[in-house]
């Protein structure tokens, strides 16, 4: 098995793990971590699968760079919102859906 395919398989395992965490975890920091895990899974698949013959392909690498920056932006926003929620309510979990 080539290294690229191995990366992709690891990514294929990480993504569902992260997605499940994003859905199941209640603590916001854990959810943010889960999101990053999920994103890393997708990036691994993107780079790994494309070079499963172990010949580097610059296009997905550039895409992953773009993806990482987007993920950083999203993470920063999530952290900012989490801090703000903590400052306002003292909690680090989302309130149950308001039944209004």
């Amino acid at each position: 098995m080539s290294t690229g395919l191995l990366f992709a398989l690891v990514g294929a395992a990480l993504f569902p793990l992260g997605a499940a965490g994003l859905l199941l975890q209640r603590h916001l920091l854990r959810r943010i971590l889960a999101f990053n895990l999920m994103g890393s899974g997708a990036f691994l698949v993107l780079v790994g699968l494309a070079q499963r013959q172990d010949v580097p392909d610059p296009v997905p690498q550039a895409m992953v760079l773009t993806g990482i920056v987007v993920a950083v932006a999203a993470t920063a926003l999530a952290l900012a919102l989490t801090r703000r929620l903590h400052a306002l309510t003292g909690r680090l979990e989302l309130p149950e859906a308001a039944h209004d």
Binding site: A8, P16, A19, L24, R52
Partner: peptide
């Protein structure tokens, strides 16, 4: 439910990649 779905997705992805 979610855990099972995630596992299933991982297996399906792995199989399809291979």
């Amino acid at each position: 439910g979610i855990g099972g779905a995630a596992l299933l997705l991982a297996l399906a992805l792995g199989y399809a990649m291979l």
